[in-house]
């Protein structure tokens, strides 16, 4: 019995189990629901429970949802808003995160661990709580809003003076909170990339007559492109589908696609339409994901001597 068990552990059975567990998991909780969503996007909305049915001669060839997707400006506008907000958040995460990641590689080991801890620390508190904190900060009567308002009033002509900054319920608020929320997802892959770079390359470039900014431009930046792409997509992909932040701080008249899916599903009870929009979002994200895995493969290939 023990011999048989030991043989099983050393043999192919163990390997099969190790591969099998995630395989079954993904099939049950990703692939199957995904096909249900795809199927539902071709269904018809009904008032029954559940609120959809596969009617007609060709139950899976009902394109009403997709016709509405392209016909109704609401959805296209929501996609554009999502892409522009997600792009904005990605850009600001990069601008804030790159110097931070670079600084992490240049400080002493003790400081590095403390600072890395600080990057991850926000995850220890509830994400919702942090969004509510931002809502408090951006509100009309907060000290933060008053401070920004006084700066604005001091800098612009009197005619442009305002009583408060209209920060809440706008794309500005969405981009700000998304930038704050997703910043660690930019810093960590960038840090992992920059940390692997050989510092003697910087010295070699300096030795050959290049000043520090040129060293960054010629040596550090080109080598960090895989990190920029990894961090960028780790921010962009979830930001584009973000639901909670636009619902809490966003402009209700100009929603992002995640909020539209939620509204279709929960408020309008139009499950087929919600499924259609979800499928469209997924198709939209396939492109960036393929870029991501391509660069990942390139980066890994280049490491080999």
């Amino acid at each position: 019995m023990r011999q048989a068990l030991s043989n099983w552990f050393n043999g192919k059975g163990w390997v099969k189990l190790m591969i099998g567990i995630p395989f079954v998991w993904l099939t049950l909780f990703f692939l199957l629901p995904f096909f249900i969503v795809v199927a539902m996007s071709f269904a018809t909305n009904t008032t029954t429970q559940p609120p959809f049915s596969f009617g007609g001669e060709h139950p899976l060839l009902n394109f009403i949802g997709y016709q509405r997707l392209f016909g109704d400006g609401l959805y296209l506008r929501a996609f554009l808003t999502s892409i522009s907000n997600a792009s904005g958040a990605t850009l600001f995460c990069l601008l804030l995160g790159y110097p931070m990641a670079l600084a992490l590689t240049r400080v002493s080991k003790g400081w590095r661990n403390i600072l890395l801890m600080l990057v991850i620390l926000p995850f220890w508190t509830s994400f919702l709580l942090r969004v509510y904190a931002w809502m408090g900060l951006m509100g009309k009567s907060s000290w933060f809003n008053k401070m920004i308002t006084s700066w604005w009033n001091a800098l612009v002509p009197v005619d442009w003076a305002v009583n408060f900054m209209p920060m809440m319920y706008s794309n500005f608020a969405v981009v700000l909170v998304m930038t704050y929320t997703y910043l660690p997802f930019m810093i960590l892959p960038l840090y992992a990339n920059l940390e692997r770079l050989d510092p003697s390359l910087d010295e070699a470039a300096m030795d050959l007559g290049t000043k520090p900014f040129g060293v960054f431009r010629d040596i550090t930046l080109p080598q960090s492109i895989p990190g920029i792409i990894a961090g960028g997509l780790l921010v962009f992909i979830p930001a584009a589908g973000e639901m909670v932040i636009p619902t809490l701080v966003g402009d209700a008249a100009n929603p992002m696609i995640g909020r539209v899916i939620n509204d279709e599903f929960a408020q309008a009870r139009d499950w087929p339409m919600a499924a259609t929009v979800a499928v469209a979002l997924l198709v939209l994200m396939v492109g960036p994901m393929m870029i991501y895995s391509h660069y990942q493969a390139v980066a890994e290939g280049e490491d080999k001597p």
């Binding site: 050989d198 003697s200 390359l201 010295e203 070699a204 470039a205 030795d207 050959l208 010629d218 040596i219 080109p222 080598q223 280049e302």
Partner: peptide
């Protein structure tokens, strides 16, 4: 100019 120990060639 210096020839570095591990050569420090620019990989890109």
């Amino acid at each position: 100019h210096m020839m570095f120990q591990s050569y420090a060639l620019f990989p890109h």
